[in-house]
Design a protein around this nucleic acid. Sequence first.
RNA 1: GCCGACGUAGCUCAGCUGGUAGAGCACUUCACUCGUAAUGAAGGGGUCCGGGGUUCGAGUCCCCGCGUCGGCUCCA
Length: 649
Amino acid sequence: MEFQLPDGTRLALPGGSTGADAAAAIGAGLARAALAVRVDGELRDLSRPLPEPEGRAPTLEIVTERSGEDALALVRHDAAHVLAAAVLDLYPGTKISIGPAIEAGFYYDFEFPAGVTVNDSDFPALEEAMRAHIQADERFVREDLPVAEALERFRAEGQPYKVELIEDLVRAADPDHPLETVSLYTNGPFTDLCRGPHAPSTRRIKAFKLQSVAGSYWRGDARRQMLTRVYGTAFFSKGDLEEHLELLERARANDHRRLGPQLGLFQFSEVSPGAAFWLPGGTEVFNSLVALSREMGRERGYVEVKTPQIFDSSLWRTSGHWDKYADNMFVTEYEDRRMAVKPMNCPGHCHLYSLRPHSYRDLPLRLWEPGLLHRREPSGTLHGLLRVRHFAQDDSHIFCTEDQVQQEVANVLDFAFATYRIFGIDVRLELSTRPEQRIGSDELWDRSERALADALGQLGLEYTVNEGDGAFYGPKIDMHMTDSLGRSWQLGTCQLDYNMPERFGLAYTGADNAEHRPVMIHRALMGSYERFIGILLEHFGGELPVWLAPAQAIVLPIADRHLDYAAGVRDRLIAAGLRAELDDRTESVARKIRDAELRRVPYMLIVGDREADAGEVSVRRHPGGDAGSVPAREFELRLAEEARRRVLR
RNA sequence: GCCGACGUAGCUCAGCUGGUAGAGCACUUCACUCGUAAUGAAGGGGUCCGGGGUUCGAGUCCCCGCGUCGGCUCCA
């Protein structure tokens, strides 16, 4: 057998050689370090015979600790098996389900025996049991078993989830090539149904930690058994593990739920779960974002409207929300009328459109409303500002003709990029196409999907396609960002809708003097202002750019005799449209500086005798420190310019 | 909504196996008038999330509810 190594050389091996043989043939050191082997992209156990090449020499790569994500995923999967083994040691009779490696670790889902609950106080004992399996240097032994035998074995062991998994594998197999065997992996006393591969032995898990327990539905189905999921992570060294834990710690420090109250931006209260109380500082941030939407929207031909907060149920019947979304709406009744608080702006905008006649000359009509929405989200889903019951979207509905769709979508994308650029955010685009459950003809879907793809092409944008993930009424383009901690967030969306205009009977008079149905485009760029602020806070670690900072500058007089001059400096800044404050407390300058630094006020203006005499301010930047003295007037112009241009840093 | 954990002063937290609530910061007052990350002293402040129960006695134990957190489902 001949294989192609990563360095381009060829490796010849006798027939029946294993991955371990291949590693040994390359070098003794590599043989010791080897965890698995990758043949033509497929990851395999070292102990398995290499596949017989057909035709050209397949590529072969030995996976070691230094192989990055592949190797980490492998060892984490190993750790999941070890966790399951430890759980069975400590809690015999536990039913095991699945335990994969995930992004930053692994988990395993268990159904513990009746009456047994496991929580993080059980981690030390579990970790101890895991360490025993690791120190025992248990080999991972693969076994390919006929389906019937495997089923019998797991039935006998009282492992119904494994039985169900095998039955599903059989069912999912191609009828022409029915599933004959399944693979099992055994380490020490523990055997699990598993596709593999695994490292040679448990000893390769050098550092691990159990992190949390959580509930999870079997197969992600809310109607099925709730299992207990144990999360953990594993690395090849203690140092890597500690580094990872530090990253988590940093993420915790940058958590918007901590930063918000700390910086005086917002707070939550039991009296309205899932709804923020916006403090003065947070309200400034919020308003700055709304102002940005408004300003940019005006430049791009959007018109602002205001629609009611509460509508009669008849509107929700027309829109379809009464059938499809009723569980998520706040409903109220008076004088025998059933009313509901709006969870979305689109029905109101459709109704507003329908109130007056429209000519093709009026289109596209781009309605914008930073409307207040309420959604009855289940209590368990609330999460700071990222998932709330009361929020406002930077929401627009564009009514246009079929011919205008592509250009309008291109305009939306251009608008989106212009917006994200201001925050220094890069986005990935996803085009979601027709789902199984949908309305409208295939011809219509062909056209609308093409319109979106053409708009993306027109701007030369890269995107991935999400087959079948579109809304039931139309395809969409979603915009995702990755934050400074590597987490992904959906921000904007641009959805084509042929359904809502139909339901509302919307029309415009065409050049042919006949009635035509407009197409509607739903679009949001920041998503909701609440969520966007949450994301921004975490992304910037609380260090908001000057144009967004609640207090842009704070004047710090050195002694009380400088108060008049200081107040004058502040007043001129405010008159120039800036957000300036004065720290008039009788405190040391060091103290005033410290407090302003903790609030992350971008500019601190220290004024004492020297500054008052010269008409200057001594500028201290956050972060950055002392930036020297400048005439107060010059600083004012500089700050105004920085805020106006929305400079990022 | 479901599973698990948690809920003590405005904030961060201490309070062992049940015996009448404590610290730091913040706040108020007084003194200090200060040059680039905490001046000092004194003082005020708590239905120990809410409601039941066990007990001579509950912040502490049990039950129910609410909220928060970690997830699942869902989602801007």
